[in-house]
Simulated assay, not measured.
Amino acid sequence: MDHTAITPDSFNFITLFLRADWVVKLVMIGLAVASLWSWTVILDKTFRFASLNRAANAFEDAVASGKSLEEVAADAGERPRHVLPRMLQGALREWRESRAKGLSTDTQAAFLIQRIDRVLDAAIARESARVELGLGSLAIVATASPFIGLFGTVWGIMTAFQSIAIQKNTSLAVVAPSIAEALFATAIGLVAAIPAYIAFNAFSTAAGKFSGRLEGFADDLSTAIQRRLADRV
């Protein structure tokens, strides 16, 4: 590796990558792939959460419009994509089946509320797991990338010292390029880790808020069913 002719172009990103040791190259490529994957997840989650909340707003407005729950559930279609209408349809299905069999005692009414709560809790659990899908990969990129980049840096510095020993020359012209290659690996690690860390925290908060929104809707729906049962007494 010739380090005698040092120019500003010797320190651009492409040159640093091409001149790096093969181990450092692998580290850089791996970190670049991890960064690309994390940005794919970030963009997907950004659009997904925006779409989910827009649909939730529209459905909650429909519920609050004064229509009956049956009308709102029918307007959502047979197989709605959003979880809120699925929760409503599941609760109403339990209500219809129990009413068809007869609700003559308080015990039967209590069992109906328990079944509805289980249906709603299962829907919330499935949806929460779905919206959190991909956050684990962001966490891995955020935590592992700096250490992988640091490994590349340590390896590059060892290579720099080996170059010094072979050439028996401690000139900055000998050391600087190898050190720059090594530090470039750390920089890529940070570039991959920082957006992933910020996005992981932001989307974890968004997922928690969305799950809380579903739980609030489930509580309101359960209360509405209990009110119907009370009106039948």
Rank of each mutant, 00 (worst) to 15 (best):
I225K: 01
R232P: 00
I188P: 15
L88M: 12
N169T: 01
W39A: 04
R54D: 12
F200H: 12
V27W: 09
F17A: 02
E60N: 13
A73S: 10
A218S: 12
Q108Y: 07
V41Y: 10
N169Y: 01
F210G: 04
A224D: 14
A218N: 04
G189S: 05
S163Y: 01
E94A: 09
A142D: 06
G212Q: 02
A206C: 04
D219P: 00
F184P: 03
T46R: 10
T205P: 00
R93Y: 13
T7Q: 09
G66L: 03
L138H: 06
A76G: 04
E94D: 08
R228H: 08
F217V: 05
L92W: 06
A122G: 00
L18R: 05
K168T: 04
V72F: 11
L112A: 04
V72L: 09
L150G: 10
V175K: 02
I124R: 09
A64Y: 10
V174Q: 07
N57M: 11
A202F: 14
R19A: 11
R93H: 11
A182W: 00
N53M: 07
T159C: 14
E127D: 15
L133S: 15
R213F: 02
D231C: 01
L150I: 14
H3F: 06
G152H: 08
R48L: 11
I116Q: 05
T170I: 09
K101N: 12
G134C: 14
V233W: 12
A187N: 05
E127T: 02
S51W: 08
A196C: 03
S98Y: 11
G208W: 02
I116K: 01
L36V: 10
M28I: 15
L16N: 03
L112G: 09
K67F: 08
A202N: 12
I148K: 06
D44W: 12
D220W: 05
E71Y: 09
L135H: 03
A206H: 11
R228A: 05
M28H: 10
L221R: 03
E127Y: 03
N169W: 01
R96Y: 08
D21P: 00
F151L: 15
S35K: 11
L92K: 07
R19T: 13
A64Q: 15
K101I: 04
L172A: 06
A55S: 07
G102Y: 04
I164N: 01
A50W: 14
